[in-house]
């Protein structure tokens, strides 16, 4: 019997699902090697099908997306019970991801912003003896390992085909990596960057620039050109795709294993290259970063030390 696997999406954009499909013909190898028993985006199995399975009967569940409502929480727990291994797939499941930036507000604030004076959703609606309900929308978005036990992490927004292929290889191979492993190289992106030789040993900048303000040179280190590239703080494994597209790293592979708080590390890396000892001048240079939280915690706010904004 082929091992059973499941895929599920929580608070996510669909990019992680797309990434699985992007495996192209490799997806056929995957389909040949395993039995996909649950994958709402592609196959017509239902929640009750999973409920009917014995506990632990699924070899691995790949869950992408953060946890932001009660429905996602319920399915995450269900899949945990039915699976031997749970993989947090993609940075939203791993660290909270882009949906986690909602932690700068709360349910009330978000609903007020989105629906204004329009018709806001109702959690429970009854009509003629029938009822319709919606999941509870939480105040705070959390990463997957805040609600269930997670065995492995596949980073990225989304994970690249190579990272997914390597992860599957590691999981189907005979030597399972230790529990809790992030299945990507444990070194900074700069180490694997094609431009790393153009990054000066001691980098100091009088000015930071935003991407729309410059036409960046295609060969030189982007940080050396004044763009806030987070490569020094970010885990490698993406094959420097953004850099190859002439865009600075925004940190979607999260931190290396020695770093507890990605944003603090990234902030430190960028602040350190500022070439001034004068408070006024430093402040002026830093104006090129209008949104520090969104810049440094773009993918990791829920799993940061502070976790969310403090609401009045």
């Amino acid at each position: 019997m082929k091992p059973k696997v499941a895929f599920y999406w929580c608070a996510s954009c669909g990019g992680c699902e797309e990434a699985v499909v992007d495996l192209d013909e490799k997806i056929l190898d995957v389909a040949n090697a395993v039995d996909i028993v649950f994958w709402p985006v592609a196959l017509d199995f239902k929640e009750h099908d999973v409920e009917a399975m014995p506990d632990g009967s699924i070899l691995a569940s790949f869950i992408n997306g953060a946890i932001r409502n009660s429905d996602q929480l319920k399915i995450a727990k269900l899949l945990r019970a039915k699976s031997q291994v749970v993989v947090a797939f993609g940075v939203c499941a791993q660290l909270g991801g882009i949906p986690g930036l909602a932690n700068m507000s709360d349910a009330k604030g978000i609903f007020a912003e989105v629906y204004r004076d329009g018709v806001a959703p109702v959690r429970l609606h009854r009509e003629n003896g029938h009822s319709l309900s919606l999941p509870e929308f939480f105040d705070t978005v959390v990463a997957l390992d805040r609600v269930i036990d997670v065995d492995y992490y596949v980073p990225g927004c989304p994970p690249t085909p190579k990272i997914i292929g390597d992860a599957l290889g590691a999981l189907l191979g005979s030597n399972l990596p230790p529990k809790g492993t992030v299945l990507a190289p444990d070194q900074a992106l700069c180490e694997q960057c094609p431009r790393k030789d153009t990054r000066p040993e001691k980098l100091l900048l009088k000015e930071l620039k935003r991407v729309h303000q410059v036409v960046a040179d295609q060969q030189t280190c982007l940080l050396a050109q004044g763009l806030a590239c987070l490569g020094p703080a970010t885990r490698a494994g993406c094959e420097a795709m953004c850099i190859r597209g002439n865009m600075p790293c925004t940190g979607c592979f999260g931190p290396t294993s020695r770093v507890r708080d990605f944003g603090a590390k990234a902030l430190s890396a960028i602040a350190s290259v500022i070439d001034s000892n004068d408070e006024g001048e430093i402040t002026r240079i830093l104006e090129a970063l209008p949104d520090p939280v969104g810049t440094f915690y773009r993918y990791s706010l829920p799993s940061s030390l502070l976790g969310r904004r403090r609401m009045e």
Binding site: L267, A271, S272, L286, P292, V293, R309
Partner: peptide
């Protein structure tokens, strides 16, 4: 440099 940037970020965190 770090403290100046961190202070701004703290403000955003409330």
């Amino acid at each position: 440099r770090r403290v100046l940037l961190l202070k701004r970020m703290l403000r955003d965190f409330g």
